[in-house]
């Protein structure tokens, strides 16, 4: 378990990191970056798995089960869509890999 103030420090530093990490993004990358960050919050899959793993009773199991389906969709769909979008940058950059 993460204690209150430790969590607060993590929140604060992560928020600054998120802000700084994309501060110089060119306009053509707006949509791919949105898609990429959409993939990154697919980490919700880990939480959904833990929630389902601890679910007791039918209602919790159903909710947890739906949660894992949705989270897996977020992660996999987010990855494939981002990959396909960034694929286009290969040709336009002349194979700069």
């Amino acid at each position: 378990m993460i204690e209150g103030f430790t969590a607060l420090y993590i929140f604060m530093l992560a928020a600054f990191t998120g802000y700084e990490v994309i501060s110089r993004v060119p306009v053509i990358l707006h949509t791919p970056l949105m898609s990429g960050s959409n993939f990154v919050h697919g980490i919700v899959l880990v939480g959904a798995m833990i929630a389902l793993g601890h679910a007791e009773g039918t209602t919790e199991q159903i909710v947890g089960f739906i949660g894992v389906i949705l989270a897996a969709g977020n992660a996999v769909g987010g990855y494939v869509v981002t990959e396909r979008m960034l694929e286009m940058f290969k040709s336009s950059k002349g194979g700069a890999k």
Binding site: M1, I2, A7, I10, F11, A14, A15, F16, T17, G18, Y19, V21, I22, S23, V25, H30, L33, M34, S37, N38, V40, H41, I43, V44, V46, G47, I50, A51
Partner: peptide
């Protein structure tokens, strides 16, 4: 929301990834 639920579940990776996306997404 993922960052918040990361705290509820007690998972630091979720807190970090969720908050980073929350902040970068707001800027974006």
């Amino acid at each position: 929301a993922v960052g918040f639920e990361g705290f509820v579940i007690g998972n630091a990776a979720m807190i970090i990834a969720g908050t980073v996306v929350g902040a970068s997404g707001t800027l974006l």
